[in-house]
Design a protein around this nucleic acid. Structure first.
Lengths: 193, 193
DNA sequence: TCGATTTTTACGAACGTTCGTCAGTTATAT
DNA sequence: ATATAACTGACGAACGTTCGTAAAAATCGA
């Protein structure tokens, strides 16, 4: 399918240059066609962008859902740390996550309402799943605290800080050091008495 | 000084639309002049951008340095939490910090080498200051742990996660909740036995 | 202090390029 | 033969930039 090739190239350029900085001419050249030919597959730049966005959202959602479903109820340390490693792994191998991250925080202004809606949607789903897991672990007395919201937000914060390091990311050593530090302190913070 | 007005407008548009999305025509209109007149003050778009970047860097550096200098050696809880609130305050009132953050993570490609250098410079300075403070607190047995690097990186992670929430930021409630959660867990993680 | 001179700032006009998009035509494949 | 896909050509608009020019401001010698 040629449409997918176009979306792949678009994903790449949108990720590197942003919406405004990516041109249809470059995207088309990457696929080996003229920019006008893109219009045989998409209504225009916005349409292409939104389809790429929705694909990225779906990938993000399903891959994380899949991992969350493997969470048990008796080993939060392993599950949570494994999730952080998954995020790193996904980010480094999956172009879609980088795209998703960039557009979450710096969307093209004229599409920001639509994007914000998608971002909020996926975020709420993730938070809900995580929160219920944390509640299970609290009930099982595997971690301390009364409200599940605290470790949930704190963990989401750790994920965010790792993602930021990945975006900035040219220093694998530093990434691993930050991961280790954040994880150590986080785990002490929710597990110790 | 008209140059400063131009830089102010440029800061605004670069922050909202990114380098590629910001046009000299819009920036000029904001100041009440034509785009050609900008060339009486700056060599071109890149020159304007880099001057704005360096101003932002200086503001960021001096404002944080100023706060760090007030850090004592006997109350890390107050100092660190106060710093987080300062970051939030600065971000919400100071356009330059938003600009700095956006360009740190998603710089225009053709200037990414220059920007990366500036970012790395400021980051190393911050890290060095923080690390020495943490070492003092460890020595004074006010926080636990052996190496200062662990709480330093963990704290920088908390700062990053707060910044990310600020960027995304339309939800003050959620911001405060995330701050509270991250701080609670972080402080438990470095202070409790 | 004054007029003369130089420098600074802003402007209209235009440059060459690139942008996204649309219309019409040709080639390919079902 | 009919639909799909890619092409050529062209469109208006916007981009950053350069030119020459005209005020305005600053500098300077008398």
């Amino acid at each position: 399918m040629k449409s997918n090739e176009i979306k792949e190239a678009a994903l790449k350029y949108f990720t590197i240059h942003g919406y405004e900085g990516a041109s249809l001419a470059q995207i088309a050249e990457e696929v080996g066609m003229k920019k006008q030919s893109i219009y045989a597959h998409f209504k225009g730049k916005d349409d292409l962008f939104l389809q790429v966005l929705r694909d990225a959202k779906e990938t993000e959602l399903s891959s994380k859902r899949q991992y969350f479903s493997k969470f048990g109820s008796k080993n939060p340390e392993k599950d949570l740390y494994g999730y952080l490693q998954l995020v790193i792994d996904l980010f480094q191998r999956n172009e879609q996550l980088k795209f998703w991250l960039r557009m979450s925080f710096f969307p093209p202004v004229h599409l920001e309402k639509v994007i914000e809606q998608e971002v909020r949607d996926i975020e709420e789903k993730m938070q809900a799943i995580l929160e219920s897991k944390f509640q299970d672990w609290i009930n099982a007395k595997l971690i301390v605290g009364d409200a599940a919201i605290t470790p949930t937000f704190a963990f989401l914060g750790v994920v965010d800080s790792i993602l930021l390091e990945l975006v900035y990311g040219n220093d694998e050593k530093r990434l691993q050091a930050k991961l280790a530090a954040s994880w150590t302190v986080f785990w002490r913070g929710i597990s110790h008495q």
